[in-house]
């Protein structure tokens, strides 16, 4: 396997990060770390479709919440089900919704897909608000175990570890795509769809693969959320912050490689946390939006792009 060294390095980095958090032995570090790593996953997921194929998904909250609410449902039905299994289910559900939405709209110009995903976020929220089983508009409480399975310590340690694992999987997938024929096909679609078809690229199938993968990872990122927040209601599960951050971070970091969403998530996520503590939580959510608008206007290649351009 060509990607093996990369995966090993990722695992090593994730291990060091986790070890560091354990050494600090501070639950705040875990809570902040969880959020930043979650945004790396979300940003990477968005970038697989948005950055690689050029199709803009605004319905991140729909996919994210499908993952989160799958866990709520599963937790009510089978309370003993381990979290990784819930993540798989949440990812598959979100992936299916992604492929379905894509199948209906991806034959048209890209903007129609974007508009459809915006509307999708509203409709999934409406469905869940009206679904009493998961608490409807009132929301649902999820009791999380006091201690972590397997590794001991607080449950947040376990959640952080799980999210780190997801992050490794998402980044390895993104990088593998970049270097495979799939990645070249995606780039061809982004640059010129008609020319891609004429060169033998099955554009619709590739776009569906990208939508499925992208939606799937968003769903997986959402699956542990109920255990992280312990109380989930539609207003917080569908918060626009998730969508804006997931789009802003790749655009700020750079959309052309797997590194972009990582850089964006760490920088913006860190800055937001800093502002939340020092100024106020209202200002910290504005940051991603303002930075995103500034970056798309002034530095459309993102931070990673700025360095790459010098190399070319």
């Amino acid at each position: 396997m060509r990607g093996t060294p990369f995966i090993l390095i990722l695992i090593a980095v994730a291990g060091v990060v986790f070890g560091l958090a354990r050494w600090l032995d501070n639950s705040y570090a875990f809570f902040v770390g969880y959020v930043v790593v979650q945004y790396i996953v979300l940003g990477t997921a968005w970038n697989i479709l948005g950055g690689y194929t050029g199709y803009v998904n605004f319905g991140i909250t729909a996919f994210f919440a499908i993952g989160a609410y799958s866990s709520v449902v599963l937790h009510k039905l089978v309370p003993t089900l381990p979290l990784p299994a819930m993540i798989v289910v949440g990812g598959v559900m979100a992936g299916i919704v992604g492929v379905g939405t894509g199948y209906l709209t991806l034959r048209l110009r890209g903007v129609y897909f974007s508009i459809a995903t915006l509307a999708l976020a509203v409709v999934v929220q409406t469905l869940i608000t009206n679904w009493d089983f998961v608490g409807g508009a009132r929301g649902a409480y999820v009791l999380r175990p006091r201690t972590a399975p397997l590794i001991g310590g607080g449950y947040i340690d376990y959640l952080f570890l799980i999210m780190l694992g997801l992050c490794v999987a998402a980044l390895a997938t993104a990088r593998a795509i970049e270097r495979s024929s799939l990645g070249f096909g995606f780039a061809a679609i982004r640059d010129d769809e008609a020319a891609a078809e004429a060169s033998g690229v099955p554009t619709l199938r590739l776009k569906l693969i990208a939508t499925g993968l992208s939606g799937g990872f968003m769903g997986m990122a959402g699956a542990p959320l109920p255990f992280y927040v312990t109380y989930l209601d539609p207003a917080s599960g569908f918060s626009l912050n998730y969508a804006v951050n997931a789009i802003a971070m790749p655009l700020i970091g750079g959309t052309s490689s797997w590194l972009g969403p990582v850089v964006g998530a760490v920088l913006v996520g860190g800055l937001q946390e800093y502002l939340r503590v020092t100024i106020s939580s209202a200002v910290n959510v504005l940051v991603a939006g303002v930075l995103m608008v500034m970056f798309v206007i002034i530095a459309p290649q993102g931070i990673v792009g700025l360095f790459q351009r010098k190399r070319r």
Binding site: S181, F184, G185, A187, A188, R190, D191, D192, A194, A195, A196, A198, S199, G200, V201, P202, S256
Partner: peptide, 28 residues
């Protein structure tokens, strides 16, 4: 195969990579 009236290259790919697309997707 066809060429387009107005050239439609894959703008973000190098020339060699431009030719790689049909090899990966048509020839393979």
């Amino acid at each position: 195969a066809r060429s387009f009236q107005l050239p439609r290259p894959f703008a973000s790919l190098s020339l060699a990579e431009n030719l790689r697309i049909p090899i990966l997707y048509a020839v393979n």
